[in-house]
Amino acid sequence: MIGWRPGRDRSREFEEVALVHLDALYRSALRLTRNRAEAEDVVQDTCLRAFRSFHRFNPGTNCRAWLFTILRNTFLNRVRGAGRELYEGDAGSAWDALVERASDRAGGGATPEEQFLETALHGDVDRALRALPLAFREPIVLVDLEGLSYREAAEVLGCPVGTVMSRLSRGRRLLRRALGDFAREHGYVGEPE
């Protein structure tokens, strides 16, 4: 009563269904780890783990979200294993204060920061993103950079859609502010009034 797919078919099916997302996994791993060597390790672990549990993947469902979930767990396990701090500033009041200030600015007309954003260099965005606390970086990577829906991101992050929504908007504000700071530091725009 139990059958299984022959090994060769399983790996071929995995390559066709899952490994087409390898680039997306690698990009996200880069953003999470902020380190190329570590990103490669995380992606490799993710793929091998995904392959081992591929029989549990339901072919009708979203493979990319499933892979991102495994990627995230792999990454978090490594971080925990290394005793590194996780979700730095997630609940931190310092970040909340920063968010408040950032949102204060979000209101008015186009500021020099916003004008700068129009012409921001990719490297700057990358740098600002790397500085963002993980809790805010994750939804931005998934939704803004990889184009997942809120529901998919919630599935990956294991949290309610409302949490994705609030972290995303807070994260974007933080990111804009960081880019604005960068612009001022480098003299692209003047000090805020």
Binding site: D23, H122, V125, I140, L145
Partner: peptide
Amino acid sequence: LLRSQPRE
């Protein structure tokens, strides 16, 4: 701007 990031 975020979406137009280079896709490695």
